Computed example of a mutant assay.
Amino acid sequence: MRTPNTTIPRAGDGLLTTRQVAARLQISTRTVRRLAAMGTLPAVRIGRLVRFHQHDVRLLERPL
């Protein structure tokens, strides 16, 4: 598995789990992991854990 991209932490920007992102975007956890692997959704690795910045998830929620 490819290492997900990392982003610079932002002050006051909470981190979300894969399940939280999936629920928020109404997609499967597998799709969230796929988006992270492709680099579409930047992820932060904390040891074995993968977390996502709320700001990055909000950008995916916006319609094009």
Rank of each mutant, 00 (worst) to 15 (best):
G14R: 15
L35D: 01
T17S: 13
I46M: 04
D13Q: 09
P63I: 09
R19S: 15
D56Y: 01
D13C: 09
P63C: 07
L41C: 06
A23F: 04
V32R: 01
L16Y: 03
R30G: 15
L35Y: 15
E61R: 11
R33P: 02
V57R: 04
Q20T: 05
F52R: 00
R45D: 12
L60R: 03
V44T: 12
H55C: 12
G12L: 13
L64W: 06
I27T: 06
V50R: 12
N5R: 10
M38I: 11
V57Q: 02
S28V: 02
G47D: 04
V21G: 02
P9V: 04
L15E: 11
A37M: 10
R34H: 13
A43T: 03
T17D: 04
R33S: 05
A23D: 15
A23G: 14
P4A: 03
R30I: 07
T3S: 10
V57C: 01
L41Q: 01
R33W: 08
L35H: 10
I46V: 15
I8K: 08
T31K: 13
R51I: 03
R58Y: 05
P42T: 09
R34C: 07
V57G: 04
D56A: 07
Q20H: 05
A37P: 01
R62W: 00
A23T: 14
T40Q: 13
R30E: 08
R19Y: 03
V21D: 00
A23K: 14
T3Q: 10
T18R: 07
T6L: 05
H55G: 06
I27A: 02
D56T: 02
H55T: 15
L15P: 00
V32K: 01
H53K: 14
L59T: 15
P9G: 06
L49S: 14
D56F: 01
D56Q: 07
Q20S: 07
R48E: 05
R48V: 09
A36Y: 00
T6Y: 04
R51M: 12
A37G: 03
H55S: 13
L41I: 05
T18M: 03
H53V: 00
Q20M: 12
R48G: 06
A22L: 08
R19E: 15
R24D: 14
L15I: 11
L41M: 04
V21Y: 00
F52G: 00
R51T: 05
V57W: 00
E61D: 07
D13K: 06
L16E: 06
T29V: 10
M38A: 14
A23M: 12
P42M: 06
T17R: 06
M1V: 04
R30S: 11
M1E: 11
L60D: 00
T18A: 07
Q26V: 09
M38Q: 15
T40G: 06
R2V: 12
R58V: 10
D13M: 07
A43F: 00
L35W: 11
T29H: 03
L59M: 13
N5S: 14
T40D: 12
P63R: 15
R10Q: 15
G47T: 10
G14P: 08
T3M: 11
T40S: 12
G47E: 03
E61C: 10
R10H: 09
T18L: 06
R62H: 08
T29N: 06
S28T: 15
T3P: 05
A43K: 01
S28P: 02
I27N: 04
M38E: 15
R34L: 13
P4S: 08
R10M: 10
V32W: 01
E61T: 05
Q20W: 03
T18V: 14
A22S: 10
L25Y: 00
